[in-house]
Write a protein that binds this DNA or RNA. Structure first.
Lengths: 182, 182
DNA sequence: AGATAAGCGAAGTGGCGACTTCGGATCCTA
DNA sequence: TAGGATCCGAAGTCGCCACTTCGCTTATCT
């Protein structure tokens, strides 16, 4: 692969992240191309279909979070680690979710995204289990439920631009609900 | 207004609710017309713009919930009433939210929907305050936060068709977080 | 029952956005 | 540094979907 091609690919992904984050996932491919400073054809050469582009952006986001989660799985205090993870997912996931919506709308389930989602689920699972084993998270909550909650918070945050205080408060409520019974 | 016109209007609204609920808000107007058993022109005569149609469907949903909330505001037990309300909003709101997303995407904020949203907010507020006054809900939570939480749960439920057990579990976590500290 | 106005749907129209084509520019190799 | 392969973007094509037009149908009123 030529260096200019690789550079363009990077530029496109970065632009896609920006554009989809701001305009939502229904933003046109041309807007992404414009923002990346390339022609549409170049975008389509790298990502044959719009879904492919969205998927690639999604996988990127997911993998960032996976890295973060794996780090937290080794953190000294399991309780705060769980809290950190939830907060991070909510605050950094705004774009991710609108993208996921678009993918969900299409009938096809792109395998790449599904894999990334599974990786993330597993990483989150590890953090949750550790908190439960340490007795600081209620044991009757499954990853699926946690994941569901996080996704919900993220989506709400993405959909309505709301004062940070409100979303923080909402996260606090969820974390309290997650904590072991006092 | 002629009776057939009014009947068609009803049919269209019902179809819109169905279609948008199933296909998401990006479903075409023609699909709504087909499902309603009328021509597209009829749909556009009643709702000059697609946004108008979406808005009308939204307002309907909101007002249903407002009715429910007002009922619960007079229920004997304030704590369970709050729980009921949250559950109802999450379970019956699946379509509502995807619609709200579409509206949010457009730059315009249709005043009708905004009004309905405000009414709902107020009704929810009443239920929450009563639970707080009764000492069964933590006093440091605002309607905005509750609203945010509910919206999140609803959206998550709408986006990923997940076993009911999971969404129930998630709601339970939120309700526990909402409960007064034990 | 007949007039009339309101309502209806089949058949358009226009624009937007996903995707393609092709002649020219750019990078790497020998 | 010359040649060939790779990559690029301007200018399309094509289909879909929001919205309109217009001749016909149907309710309502007298």
């Amino acid at each position: 692969m030529r260096v200019d091609a690789r550079l363009n690919r990077e530029r496109i992904l970065a632009a896609a992240e920006e554009v989809f984050g701001e305009l939502g996932a229904q933003a046109s491919t041309e807007e992404v191309a414009r923002r990346a400073g390339v022609g549409v054809a170049t975008v389509f050469r790298h990502f044959p279909t719009k879904t492919d582009l969205v998927e690639a952006t999604l996988v990127r986001h997911f993998d960032d979070l996976v890295t973060h989660a794996r780090m937290l799985a080794a953190a000294p205090a399991p309780g705060p680690a769980l809290g950190d993870l939830v907060t991070a997912m909510v605050e950094r996931g705004a774009t991710k979710v609108t993208l996921a919506n678009l993918l969900g709308a299409a009938d096809q389930v792109p395998s790449g995204a599904a894999d990334a989602a599974r990786r993330l689920r597993d990483a989150v699972d590890a953090v949750l289990r550790r908190a439960q084993d340490a007795g600081v998270a209620r044991p009757d909550v499954s990853v699926d439920e946690l994941y569901f909650l996080v996704r919900g918070l993220t989506q709400a945050a993405a959909a309505m631009p709301v004062p940070t205080a409100v979303s923080r408060g909402a996260v606090r409520v969820v974390l309290d609900g997650l904590a072991a019974h006092r």
